[in-house]
Each structure stands twice: as structure tokens, then as C-alpha cells.
Design a binder for these strands. Structure first.
Length: 646
RNA sequence: GCCGACGUAGCUCAGGGGUAGAGCGUUUCCUUGGUAAGGAAGAGGUCACGGGUUCAAUUCCCGUCGUCGGCUCCA
């Protein structure tokens, strides 16, 4: 007998070799019907795998992340199986479960498929699922595994197997389909009741641009048709929050092919919004001892040779601008740090002067490949809320911590709760990519890890994601469709100070090298606004809204009074406008609701004679009658309250 | 840049080898109204751009540009 510990810490005895399914059955028939996989001492396994020793287990159903993963992984096999049936000779790459569904990378050889073929594949998958095909796990010696796929002519699987160790290789069989796979899988295909193929795309083999591009088919599956329908409805809802759609509807920004792709045009309302954000951060930075600087939009090639950016990105940049007579080369600035380094060199600093913090909303231009552009989140010209802190080595941790505080302050002010933090370090296997000494990198990485730890911030550590000059701490927020975008970033840099030979005079009267911290709490104004729009679906917090109130006269007779109210509001610093059209009140209200203006002020005969406004709040409805002064106070208090909470 | 899809009025979209349609918006007029759409008339399109096939192309084919979903990249 072995002892099995359940998640509630209760312990039950089972015969040695008991399976997950048997454990589920011993608990309840219902659980046995719904269970999809099991974790044994933290490792997710098939329900049919015998358990040989004492263990802690957790049974996974559709309601668990692991249950969904098992379902989707098996669905990927099912799809591959259907595709092999429909398109004989197809070769297979990898087919994992992902956050929302699964995909399989395939090489169709002669065949091509498009989304028009999805119906056919889905139908075949459902047929196979109903056959209740069992997933059978087999341990296979490496030689045999290689021979199997060499015979089949599937070079991708051969490639994968070559990297595996003998004795660890397993195949899974379902129906006629055999796949190299670690598992785990469902006991059989029957829980897969609803299937939707979602997209088709190219994907490089092993993520390597220089290798062959396979066809990637994305899909998702559910245990009930109704859940599929709900998922599709949710996707439709998410599309309504798309910042590109809301940006057009609320007249925030636009693009013009004539101006150039990836070059956003900020419209008056969008510019107002962005300025409000900038002013908010400027205020925070003033309090935190940052000094504003302004630098030009271009820089001499030599600047970037010094910084190392030229060597790294020179060929992947917009081509240089040249002076007609001398042939000097200038680059559109792709980042602000080299300029800020030169500002540091303008005068001599004592150790007592440090840290100095130069801040600039610096507009930069980067050549992004055309296929990478995406709304406001990935553009070719954007403005960083950039600053560079030059400090003594003993100040790094404290300064870094202070920047974390600013980022968190901003996220709080905007009610971003669902963010994640990521520490990006060097790739130890590819040190060529980086500049600077081993010792400096060690120091920088250590500083970031310690400061993050001391802030009690939970951050995932990812190697190979560092910038070429230093490691960083990034803050990621998801968009409406769950795609992760990097917003705030903080980077510790020992390298640029060296390359620019930055110095300060220490208490020992000797020259010392400062440490540089790059930071942008928003990341870029463009991307931040994009994510903000998707977060609030265009219902901006009152203090940010481009228009905070709109005055709706009941008829043309009250235009004069409306103007009086407008003047009063403007004098209190409230952004407001009048809907002067000869429309009925109902229509004006409808339009103002659609434009998501936080407050509507209805003025007619009654209001004019009483000196009041009738207030309606966006999404809430009628709040009743207020004097204009009382309304201004109400609005300003609301703003103050929001701001004081952060 | 690569794979795939798409591009019809300012917006959302219908149509389809014989040079175009709806709703919203916009303009003018009527209406002057009390908390989510008042009425009428009008304007507005080289059907993304450039080639080709055809008696005839917005429609079919090719290329370019742009957009969308991925991949790669992201200083």
C-alpha cells in the first residue's frame, strides 16, 4: 500500500500502482467523470499512469489551469491526427498547449491550407473525438524513435529527438496517429466536445528566422459547446476595447499611409489626454528630484559609435541623414541616453552632487520591421518618458528602489492591478551579444535582484532578455486580448558611463565612475495610452479625460446660459464644452454617453432661472440639480480624492 | 522582413465582368424639445495604387502600398 495525500491534507491508502482515475473514482463518480489529469508531487501526469510510491496529488478538472492544459495538449494531437488524415504526408513540428488553446506547427509539403479549410478539419477532429480514441503512452529507445521518424520522413521530429537523451523518450498514440510527446494527455479524446480553429500563421522552425517557416494552426477546445460560444462572445467583447477602434471613435489618434506607417498622429483629444499624463509624471518627477533637459532629435554618428549602439543597431536603423557639403552623418535618435551622457559631461560633479537625474519626454525613431507594427503599441516614432540617473555605486540600490516606487505609484493611480514584473538578465550562452565587463554585469544584475527583492516585488527572472548594455526590470501589462506588453522599464548600466568616460570627484579627491540607471515608468506614451485605453475601454479617469464635462442646452434659447456655465467651469480649471446642435436632449445625451464624457450638464429654463445645472454622470444617470459652483467643487473633489489615494 | 487574410463614402458594412448601395456621420431647411436616436432634402466614391487578361475590370490575374492575425525582432 502507498499513502496518497490529497490537497485538503487528508491521507488515504491505495494499493501500489494505483492510477489517478482510480483515486478520482474513490472520491466520487462525478469527479471521475470530470477529471482530466493529475499532479503527482507537483508533476502533471496521465490519469492512467500507475503511482508507485507515497505522494501528494491533486486531481485536475476543466476548472484548473492544468486540466485545461491537458485538454488543449490532447486537442493539438487530435488536430494533428485530423490533418494527417486529410493531408497525407504532412510533417509535424511541435504542438503545445498555450494560454488560450493550442497550436501545431506543420509542414504541409505540396499542400496549402487556409482558414477556409478550418471547417473541414474541425469536423474531422470532432468525428475522431467522438470515437473515444485512447491516448496510449509508450517509452521508446532513442534509436527506435529516430528510426520511426526517419522512415516517416519527418525531419523535424528527428531534429527534436536528436536533442533528447535515451531513456527519456516517449510516444503517444491515439487512433492512427503517433507523436513524439512528453505528455501528459487525457485518457481518451471523448472530453473534447467543442472545437474552434482560430488562426493560421507562419512560424519559423525552432523560432529561428534563418530556418524554414512552418504553418502554425491555432485552435481552442472545450468540454461543452456552450463554453465555446461564451469564449467567442468574450473575444467579440474584447475587440470592442481595442485601442485602435476606440482611438478612432473618440478621435484620439490616427495613422496616415502618406505620413508613413507606424507614425502616429495625435488628434486634439488624444494630445490632451497624453499631455495630462505627461503633466502628472512631471509633477511626480519634480517632487522626486529630477531635472528637466531637452535634447535634439538627431545625433552625430560618432555619438552612437561611442555608445555602442551603432555597432549593434547601425544597420537596422533608419539610414543616416547627411550634411550636403561635408557629408557628416547624423542618425534620427533611437534613444536618449547618449545625449544625456553628454549632458553629464558638461560640468564636473562632486560625489556630493550625486545622484543627478535628467528627465526628458524624448521622441525617438526606430526602424521596426513592417510586420511588427501594431496600433500604438509598436510604432516607428514614439516618445519615451525617459530619465537617466547618474549616481555613486553606493546609491544604486536606493535609487533603483525609488524608481520602482514611481512605477507602482503610476500603476496605482491608473488602477493597473494585473501587471507582472520581469527581471531580464544576460544569456550566459551568448555573451557576444553584450558590451561591458563580466564584473560590471555581475554588479548590475545583483543590484536589480536585490532592489526588487527588498521592495517585496515578485518578479520572474528571464535570462537572455537583457538590453545589450545592461540588465533590466520590466513591468508588463496585458491588453484586452491578453497579449502582454512591456510598459515601465528600469535598467542598471555600468557600461555607458565607461564608454563615455563619465566621472565625478569622490571624497578622496580622485576621479570615479558613476553608475547610470535608465528608466521610463510609462515606457512610451504611445504604448501606455494604448494599454490604458484597453484597460478602461475609453472610460478614462476623470483627471485624465480630454473632456470632463459637456453642457447640453435643452434648446437654442439656452445657449447664452450654457456659455456662462462654460466660462465658470473653465475658470475653475475644468475641461468642458457645449453641444450646440439643434438636437433633442435625448440625442445629445446619447451622443455624449457614446463619447464617454464623464459628466453631462443639462441646462434649460429651470436651470437658467435658478443658476444651476442638472448633472448626469456617464454610465450612472441623473444626479440631480447643482449650482455651477457646487458642481465644480464636486468634480474637483472627485479628482483630488482619486489623486490622494495614490 | 517572413507566412496567411483583407482593402467599396469620414465610420461600420452589403454588392458584384456591363463604371455602385445601406445605416451612422456631414450639409441645408423645418422643428425648440427635460435624461440614450425628431423630420425632410442634398452632398459625398478613379471601388487603395500600378500593370495585365477582356469588346468591357471596381469585380479575374500579377505587382506595389497599407491594414489585420501570427512568426522573427524590440536599444
Amino acid at each position: 500500500m502507498i499513502q496518497i495525500t490529497l490537497p485538503d491534507q487528508s491521507v488515504r491508502s491505495f494499493p501500489k500502482g494505483v492510477t489517478g482515475l482510480e483515486i478520482a473514482k474513490s472520491i466520487s463518480e462525478g469527479l471521475a467523470r470530470n477529471v482530466l489529469s493529475i499532479s503527482v508531487d507537483g508533476e502533471v501526469m496521465d490519469l492512467h499512469r500507475p503511482i508507485q510510491k507515497d505522494a501528494s496529488v491533486k486531481l485536475h478538472t476543466w476548472n484548473d489551469k492544468e486540466g485545461k492544459a491537458t485538454m488543449w495538449h490532447s486537442s493539438a494531437h487530435l488536430m494533428a491526427s485530423a490533418i494527417e488524415d486529410l493531408y497525407p504526408g504532412t510533417k509535424f513540428g511541435i504542438g503545445p498547449d498555450i494560454e488560450n488553446g493550442f497550436y501545431y506547427d506543420i509542414d504541409l509539403g505540396e499542400h496549402t491550407i487556409s482558414s477556409n479549410d478550418f471547417g473541414k478539419i474541425e469536423k474531422k477532429m470532432l468525428e475522431m473525438a467522438r470515437e473515444k480514441q485512447a491516448f496510449i503512452r509508450k517509452e521508446v529507445p532513442k534509436q527506435e524513435a529516430l528510426a520511426f521518424y526517419e522512415k516517416k520522413g519527418d525531419e523535424y521530429k528527428v531534429d527534436l529527438i536528436s536533442d533528447l537523451e535515451d531513456g527519456t523518450i516517449t510516444f503517444y498514440e491515439s487512433g492512427h496517429f503517433t507523436d513524439l510527446c512528453r505528455g501528459p494527455h487525457l485518457p481518451d479524446t471523448s472530453p473534447i466536445k467543442a472545437i474552434k480553429l482560430l488562426a493560421i500563421a507562419g512560424a519559423y522552425w525552432r523560432g529561428d528566422e534563418s530556418r524554414k517557416q512552418l504553418t502554425r494552426v491555432y485552435g481552442i477546445s472545450f468540454p461543452k459547446q456552450k463554453e465555446l460560444e461564451e469564449y467567442l462572445a468574450m473575444l467579440e467583447e474584447a475587440k470592442k476595447r481595442d485601442h485602435r477602434k476606440i482611438g478612432r471613435e473618440l478621435e484620439l489618434f490616427a495613422f496616415s499611409a502618406r505620413v508613413g506607417q507606424g507614425l502616429p498622429l495625435w488628434l486634439p483629444k488624444g494630445a490632451e489626454l497624453r499631455e495630462n499624463l505627461e503633466n502628472f509624471l512631471k509633477k511626480v518627477q519634480r517632487k522626486s528630484g529630477y531635472l528637466p533637459v531637452i535634447t535634439p532629435h538627431i545625433g552625430n554618428k560618432n555619438l552612437y559609435i561611442t555608445s555602442g549602439h551603432y555597432e549593434k543597431y547601425g544597420q537596422d536603423s533608419f539610414r543616416p541623414i547627411t550634411t550636403p557639403a561635408e557629408g557628416e552623418e547624423f542618425f534620427l535618435k533611437p534613444m536618449n541616453c547618449p545625449h544625456h551622457c553628454e549632458i553629464f559631461k558638461v560640468k564636473q560633479y562632486s560625489y556630493k552632487d550625486l545622484p543627478v537625474r535628467f528627465a526628458e519626454f524624448g521622441t525617438v525613431y526606430r526602424y521596426e520591421q513592417s510586420g511588427e507594427l501594431h496600433g500604438l503599441t509598436r510604432v516607428r516614432g514614439f516618445t519615451q518618458d525617459d530619465a537617466h540617473i547618474f549616481c555613486r555605486p553606493d546609491q544604486v540600490k536606493e535609487e533603483f528602489t525609488k524608481v520602482i516606487d514611481i512605477v507602482l505609484h503610476i500603476f496605482n493611480a491608473l488602477d493597473f492591478k494585473d501587471y507582472s514584473a520581469q527581471i531580464s538578465l544576460r544569456d550566459p550562452k551568448d555573451m557576444e551579444k553584450y558590451i561591458g565587463t563580466e564584473a560590471n554585469w555581475d554588479k548590475a544584475e545583483q543590484a536589480i535582484i536585490e532592489a526588487t527583492h527588498e521592495k517585496g516585488l515578485h518578479a520572474e527572472i528571464v535570462t537572455g532578455e537583457a538590453a545589450f548594455y545592461g540588465p533590466k526590470l520590466d513591468f508588463m501589462v496585458k491588453d484586452a486580448l491578453g497579449r502582454k506588453w512591456q510598459l515601465g522599464t528600469i535598467q542598471v548600466d555600468y557600461n555607458l558611463p565607461e564608454r563615455f568616460e563619465l566621472e565625478y570627484i569622490g571624497s578622496d579627491n580622485q576621479k570615479h565612475r558613476p553608475v547610470m540607471i535608465h528608466r521610463a515608468p510609462f515606457g512610451s506614451m504611445e504604448r501606455f495610452v494604448a494599454v490604458l485605453i484597453e484597460h478602461c475601454a475609453g472610460n478614462f479617469p476623470l483627471w485624465l479625460a480630454p473632456d470632463q464635462a459637456i453642457i447640453l442646452p435643452i434648446s437654442d434659447k439656452y445657449q447664452e446660459y450654457a456659455k456662462k456655465v462654460l466660462t465658470l467651469l473653465n475658470n475653475s480649471g475644468i475641461r468642458a464644452l457645449i453641444d450646440e446642435r439643434s438636437e433633442k436632449t435625448g440625442k445629445k445625451i446619447r451622443d455624449a454617453e457614446i463619447r464617454k464624457v464623464p459628466y453631462m450638464l443639462i441646462v434649460g429654463e429651470k436651470e437658467e432661472s435658478d443658476g444651476t445645472v442638472s448633472v448626469r454622470k456617464h454610465g450612472k444617470g441623473d444626479l440631480g440639480s447643482f449650482t455651477t459652483e457646487a458642481f465644480s467643487r464636486l468634480l474637483l473633489d472627485e479628482i483630488k480624492e482619486i489623486m490622494s489615494q495614490t
